[in-house]
Simulated scan of single mutants.
Amino acid sequence: MLDSAVAWMNARGNTEQWGTVPYSQTSGGAARIERYTTVNSPYVAELDGVPVGALVLDSGPSPQMPIPAAGEPERYVRLLVSDRRHAGLGIGAALLAHAVDETRRAGIGLLRVDCWAGGGGELVAYYERNGFAPTESFLSGTWPGQVLARRVG
Rank of each mutant, 00 (worst) to 15 (best):
V56K: 07
E102W: 01
F132D: 02
L57H: 04
E102Y: 02
L110T: 04
G71D: 13
N130E: 11
L95Y: 06
I91C: 08
G92A: 10
A97T: 01
F132M: 06
L110K: 06
G118N: 13
S59T: 03
G60V: 00
A133W: 01
A94S: 14
A69L: 11
L96S: 02
M65Q: 07
E46N: 12
G88C: 11
E102K: 08
R78K: 08
R78P: 00
E128P: 00
E128K: 05
A54N: 07
N40W: 11
V39N: 11
Q64P: 00
G109W: 08
H86L: 10
G107T: 00
T37D: 15
R129K: 12
E122Q: 14
S82G: 14
C115A: 14
P66Y: 11
G109Y: 07
I108G: 03
D58F: 02
P134M: 09
L123I: 04
H98P: 00
Y126Q: 04
R105E: 13
L47M: 14
A133P: 00
R84D: 15
D48G: 12
G107I: 00
P51T: 13
S41F: 08
R129D: 11
Q64L: 08
I91T: 09
G119L: 07
H98D: 08
A99V: 00
P61A: 12
E102M: 06
H86G: 08
R112P: 02
A45V: 03
S62K: 02
F132H: 02
V52H: 15
L96F: 03
D101L: 01
P42T: 10
P68C: 09
L55Q: 06
P134A: 12
P66L: 12
Y127G: 02
L111Q: 12
G60C: 03
R84E: 15
G119C: 12
R105M: 07
A54V: 05
L79G: 03
E74N: 04
C115E: 13
E102L: 06
N130S: 07
A117Y: 08
R129A: 11
D101S: 04
